[in-house]
């Protein structure tokens, strides 16, 4: 793959990032938003890992007869970023579950509509929505 034009990887990564970003900001379903967020982050990982690659290099684990290694630092950074990504997704999913219990919906516009209706009904903000505790 070392023979390929040098910026191809980055451009695909950019396209994928934007696909994820688009899902986050255009979709109203909260679960799908989180999928988009993960897609966005995963594509940033591709961007990082691509920059660490050295042509004809090998995985950065010391081995006999290998002189050219790819850069280990982006790998380390992305290991951390993967963890951050899954942590964020987990917290987001837990929030979605609670939102679903409190509002009976995971669609952004329905949640918005219910908040507005509650505002009108009580004539002030924050009146009605005591969320269920567990």
């Amino acid at each position: 793959m070392s023979g390929l034009p040098g910026l191809y990887n980055y451009w695909i990564a950019v396209f994928l990032m934007m696909a994820g970003f688009y899902v986050v900001i255009s979709q109203g379903n909260l679960v799908k938003k989180l999928v988009g967020l993960s897609l966005f982050q995963t594509s940033v990982f591709i961007f990082y890992i691509s920059m660490g690659k050295v042509a004809d290099g090998h995985a950065p684990i010391l081995a006999e007869g290998v002189t050219v290694y790819s850069n280990p630092l982006p790998h380390v950074l992305i290991l951390t970023a993967i963890v951050v990504g899954v942590a964020t997704t987990a917290v987001g999913l837990a929030l979605v579950v609670r939102i679903n219990e409190a509002y009976g919906s995971v669609e952004e516009d329905e949640i918005q509509a219910r908040d507005n209706a509650a505002d009108k009904a009580t004539g002030r903000s924050g009146g009605s929505g005591e969320s269920p505790r567990t």
């Binding site: 964020t88 979605v96 939102i99 908040d115 929505g129 005591e130």
Partner: peptide, 12 residues
């Protein structure tokens, strides 16, 4: 308030 949940999600 239950809006704490949606606010938190939006912030997330």
């Amino acid at each position: 308030d239950r809006r704490a949940l949606s606010a938190s999600f939006q912030y997330l």
